[in-house]
Every structure is written in structure tokens, then in C-alpha cells.
Design a protein around this nucleic acid. Sequence first.
DNA 1: ATAATTAATTAGGACTATCTAAATATTTAG
DNA 2: CTAAATATTTAGATAGTCCTAATTAATTAT
Lengths: 216, 216
Amino acid sequence: MTPSEENYLKAIYQLGETSKASISTNAIAEKMKTKPSSVTDMIKKLSDKKLILYRKYKGVSLTDVGRISALSTLRKHRLWEVFLVEKLHFTWDEVHEVAEQLEHIRSEQLIDRLDQHLGFPRTDPHGDPIPSKDGNYKKFIKKLLSEMAVGSEGICIGVKDSSTAFLSFMDKNRIALGDKITLLDKEEFDGSLHIKVKDRPLQISSQIACNLYIEL
Amino acid sequence: MTPSEENYLKAIYQLGETSKASISTNAIAEKMKTKPSSVTDMIKKLSDKKLILYRKYKGVSLTDVGRISALSTLRKHRLWEVFLVEKLHFTWDEVHEVAEQLEHIRSEQLIDRLDQHLGFPRTDPHGDPIPSKDGNYKKFIKKLLSEMAVGSEGICIGVKDSSTAFLSFMDKNRIALGDKITLLDKEEFDGSLHIKVKDRPLQISSQIACNLYIEL
DNA sequence: ATAATTAATTAGGACTATCTAAATATTTAG
DNA sequence: CTAAATATTTAGATAGTCCTAATTAATTAT
Ligand SMILES: [Mn+2]
Ligand SMILES: [Mn+2]
Ligand SMILES: [Mn+2]
Ligand SMILES: [Mn+2]
């Protein structure tokens, strides 16, 4: 399995997490920042290797073997992100690019021991769950802040968007994972929200609210 | 700089550490476990990039830029080896293959913080010195056990051969870096040595003695 | 139902890194 | 000093990944 193959499988898995239907060539191309023709080349290869199911013009879906591989890469990516934050004191907006490289290091022993060294973490710095060694992957039932009822409260447990732009917005406004958030009011006009973060009042746009996961 | 280019530069540097003359195509091919024709292809490329000096049929040598790159890769390799042993409890014969991959991860911040996390180590698990961030590299004056005078003593500070075969021999015979070694006697017949390791008597072959560095 | 639009594939090419086999240069031995 | 042996380079091929441009299939709008 080459790094490129691993990246494609991971992308297909992540696109399937939300949509669940078969994944289109263009969707993969957009996520991988590559051209549709390159995607077609690769999906033929992955299909030959029985890592995905592919019907021309109808999109792809992962086989069991393909899904296990994708989860393994996701596991490595997220464990390395935890390492970078917990042990090397990176901020949560600095880790992604480096983890994109580290996830392709080939050594089962390495990842086992890294997991142990980190104390078997269950989530990464962005609140995403870490698949277990055997490929088990419990998706939390996560609710977006934008879907909360006015007056209810919950704990901020994750971000949907992991871009530097969004994460540094979070830092600037001192909202962190684990913080208690109360939804005070919604503006009719633009959908912006009045919230309390650890008893500190704050007003945020609806775009922000659509990217914050809350556990009630 | 691709991983392959980095590997070639590192190989050329290491071949030059001992010989100091220009490095032959075949020597590089042997070290890289590849074919001489592949080496010719790559040295043309490295020469075009001014990373090495190349005269057809006359071998190559590193330019200043090439040497800095080689030392940077060596630094990463050795820092990762320290990490694997100190933090993830790998044994010193298990680290090389993984470090060969990790040394190509591209992130200056990563390697700086790793260095700090490890407490700025000066040598790797095999006793090899770690080049500094700015490319300074102080070679220790190392003497081989085979060159010691009978009756003298010293500290074992490194191994010349880092193969699993040799390192597990060391473990089996309980010889570790930092141990005090006294040369008691040399056998005329086969050149084998009678030594004391931390006051424990031991007999070793001359091949072993040729691969152990001692500081007097 | 047909036309226009969008999505996907194919054709053909570039670039990297590797190899085998053949040709050529250099070194070594007699 | 020549001949044999060795070292090195060149020629030509393959495999992987990505690209642009052209073609074909599927979807949508009229
Ligand atoms: Mn990431
Ligand atoms: Mn993450
Ligand atoms: Mn090593
Ligand atoms: Mn080493």
C-alpha cells in the first residue's frame, strides 16, 4: 500500500461517513485537491486490488478490506496528532500537515507503542474519535451547536472544520474542547447566536455554530 | 528534496566520512542496495542541483549545500532513534528501519521540538554523534577496541556496525554503551581478545573488537 | 423528448525512480 | 604496453502518479 493509495482510501472513507451513498469521482477529486482524471486512474487501481467497489459512472464504495485500511490510516493520523499536541506542545491548528506525513510511516510496533505512550487516547485534539487497533470505530452521536434548542446547554466536544482559520478563531475567542456552552438566544436576522462559554457571554455567527459539536 | 535524494546524499556523506577521497558509483550502489546505473541517474540529478560535484568516471563529492542537507537528514535519523529508544522503549536493534522512514518527515518545527523533548541529546543509541541544527558536527576521536593496548582500559562509547546481528550479540553478552572495558590479553592464534566488562571476564573474537569504539 | 449542462472516462504525455543489457572508459595484470 | 578485468555510463523499458485536452455518459432544464 503506497501513501497515495492510503490517502485515497482515507478520503473515500471520510466522504462516506456523512453521505453513506456511493462516492463520486468529483467529490474525491475535490477532497484530494487533484483532477477527476487522476481519481479515475487511482480508483481503477484500488478496484483491481479489491479495496473498493467501482461501477463506471456510478461511483465507489469501500470493501471491508478497504475500510480496515482506511481506519488504520485514520488511527495513525489521530494518534500522531495527539502526540504532537500532548508531548511536543504543538497547538491544535499546527498538527494536521505533519500528521498527514506521519500517518504513512509503516511500523505496527511503532503505532502500538505510541498508543501506549499516549495512554490509549480515545479522541484526537479536534475531538475526533480514534479507531482501535482492530478497526473498531465508535462514532459518537454528535450534535451541532446550530441544532441546539435555545436555553439548553452542553459541552463542546469537537470541531467539524479543522482548518487553521477556524481553529485560530476558536483560540482567539477562548472556546476550547471541554468547555460548557449555553445557548442563550438566536438572532432572527442573520441566524447568529448568543452563547455563554464557561459563564462568559459571546456572540457567534451561524457559520461558527455549524462547525462546533456539542454533547448534551 | 525527495526522500530518495536525501538517502543518496546521506549515503555519500557516510561513505566520505572514512575515505575522504571522491566516492565511486559502485560504492554508492552497494550502500544503497541498488544498481550502478540507477546511481548514475541520480548523481546526474544531484549534480544538476549543485548538491554534489561530479566528474564522469571520477566519482562524486558533496558541495557545502549537499553536506548541510546530508547532516540534516542524519540529525533527524538519530534524533528519531533516540526517541524510539528513550520514549517508546524500542531496543537499539529495532530502531533503524523505522528511523529510515521518519528521517524524511518534513517539518522544521517537528524536529526542533523533538530535540527539546529529548533534552538535546548529543549521541544516538549506537553512540553516533547528533549533528546540531546549524549543521555543526563534531566527530569524536574514536578508537576501536581492536587497537587498544593490552592492559589498558576505557569506556565503550559506540558501535561501528549497527546491524541487528551485531547488536543482539552485544545484548546477549551484556556489553552496553557506557560500560568500562579492560583489555586483559590478546590471543596470538586468532586475534581474539580476553576482556573485562564491568569486572566480568569475557572472550571475544577480533571481528567483534573491530566494531566496538572505546574512549580511553 | 430533446438540448444543454455537468460528470466521468479515455487518450496521450510528463516526470520520477527503478531495472536489464549493451557499450564504453578506466584500471590492473602479465 | 597491450590484454583482460572491472567500473561506469548509456540505451531502452517498466511502473507509479499526476496532468491537459478530447470524448462519452448521465443528468437537468426547457
Ligand atoms: Mn488532521
Ligand atoms: Mn484531527
Ligand atoms: Mn539508524
Ligand atoms: Mn544510529
